[in-house]
C-alpha cells in the first residue's frame, strides 16, 4: 500500500524525515530572522555564523570543559545570545538611523570575521560531536527505522517555535514587543525602555540561531561553513514566507523542508535548488510572500 510510483516506503519515509529535520532548522532559523527583522528592521546576515557558533560552543564546552550536550543546549545559546547583545550594543545600534541595508552589510562583515576565525583555528574538515547517550539508538516503526536523536530534533524545534510564538503573541512581554514593532516612539512614551528591548530581541534571535547550532552539532560535522550554506537557503525560505508573521515563518520552514525531502526522492538532482525555484515562482505569483503583508 506504500508502493507509491515504485518507490519503496522506507526511502520515501526516510527522505521525508530528513526533510522534516532540515525543515526544523529552517523553521528555527527563519523564526529568529523574523523576530529580529520585526523590531530592528534589519536582516541579520550573521545568523548563519551564529548558528555555526552555537555548534562550536557546544563542541568547545565538551572538549575543553567536559560539559555535555544537555547543559550545552542551554549554555551555548546563552553564550551566542550574549555576543549578539554585545554586537547590537557596540555596532548595530549606531546604524538604526541609516538605510537598513547598512545593517545587512555590517552583519555580513561580522559573519565573514566569525567564519574566518573558526576556519583559522579549527580547519574546514569538520569536528565530530557525539549523539548524547540518552538519545542513541532508535525505534523500529515497522515501515521505517526512526533514530531517536532525529526525532528529538523535530520535537525540540517544535517546542522552541511554539514557545516563541506563545511568548510573542500571548504574553504581556510579547505585546510590548509587537507594540514597539508598530510604533517605538509611542511605546517609549509609556515608559518602556525600547532600546533595551531591541538589544534583548537581537540577543534572543541570535540565541535561537545558537540553539539550532547545538541541535545540529551531533548530526552534521561541526564546521565553519555550515552556517553560510544554511543561511542562504533560509533567506530564500524567508522570501517565500514573508517576514510579516511568526507563525508564517514557522510553517514555511517545515513545509519547505518537506518539499525538499520529497524532491530528493523523485528528482534528486533538483533537491539543492528546489527552494530557489519555489522562490522564483512565489516572486512571480505573490511577490510579497505567502504570509507577507503587501510591501
Amino acid at each position: 500500500m506504500f508502493e507509491l510510483l515504485g518507490i519503496a516506503p522506507q526511502v520515501l519515509m526516510g527522505q521525508l524525515l530528513l526533510g522534516l529535520i532540515n525543515g526544523s532548522f529552517y523553521a528555527v532559523l527563519s523564526l529568529g530572522l523574523a523576530v529580529i527583522f520585526g523590531l530592528l528592521n534589519i536582516i541579520n546576515f550573521a545568523h548563519g555564523a551564529q548558528y555555526m557558533m552555537g555548534a562550536f560552543v557546544a563542541w568547545m564546552l565538551l572538549n575543553y570543559l567536559g560539559i555535555g550536550y544537555w547543559p550545552a543546549l542551554i549554555l551555548a545559546p546563552l553564550v551566542v545570545g550574549a555576543t549578539g547583545v554585545l554586537l547590537e550594543k557596540l555596532a548595530l545600534s549606531r546604524l538604526y538611523k541609516l538605510d537598513h541595508l547598512y545593517g545587512l552589510l555590517l552583519t555580513f562583515g561580522v559573519a565573514v570575521i566569525l567564519q574566518g576565525f573558526f576556519r583559522n583555528y579549527y580547519g574546514i574538515s569538520g569536528l565530530p560531536y557525539q549523539i548524547p547517550a540518552a538519545m542513541a539508538g532508535g525505534q523500529n516503526l515497522g515501515f521505517m527505522f526512526l533514530p531517536n536523536y532525529r526525532a528529538w530534533i523535530v520535537v525540540a524545534s517544535v517546542i522552541v517555535c511554539l514557545g516563541t510564538w506563545f511568548m510573542i503573541e500571548k504574553t504581556r512581554l510579547g505585546a510590548y514587543l509587537r507594540a514597539a514593532t508598530e510604533n517605538p516612539a509611542l511605546v517609549g512614551a509609556f515608559g518602556i525602555n525600547v532600546p533595551r528591548m531591541i538589544t534583548l530581541t537581537y540577543g534572543f534571535g541570535a540565541a535561537l540561531a545558537g540553539f539550532a547550532g547545538v541541535l545540529a552539532a551531533p548530526i552534521y560535522a561541526v564546521n565553519p561553513n555550515m552556517g553560510a550554506d544554511m543561511i542562504i537557503v533560509v533567506f530564500a525560505v524567508v522570501v517565500i514566507g514573508g517576514m510579516g508573521s511568526i507563525i508564517g515563518a514557522i510553517i514555511t520552514g517545515y513545509g519547505l523542508g518537506l518539499v525538499e525531502g520529497l524532491t530528493r526522492v523523485f528528482y534528486p538532482e533538483g533537491s539543492a535548488v528546489v527552494i530557489f525555484v519555489i522562490m522564483a515562482i512565489v516572486l512571480l505569483v505573490k511577490p510579497e510572500g505567502l504570509f507577507g503583508r503587501a510591501a
Binding site: 555596532a91 546604524l95 555590517l106 559573519a111 565573514v112 567564519q115
Partner: peptide, 15 residues
C-alpha cells in the same frame, strides 16, 4: 587572516 581582515574592513567601513 586575509578573510578576517576583509571582514573587519567591512565592519569598520560601515560604521
Amino acid at each position: 587572516w586575509v578573510t578576517i581582515i576583509q571582514g573587519f574592513a567591512f565592519v569598520i567601513g560601515v560604521l
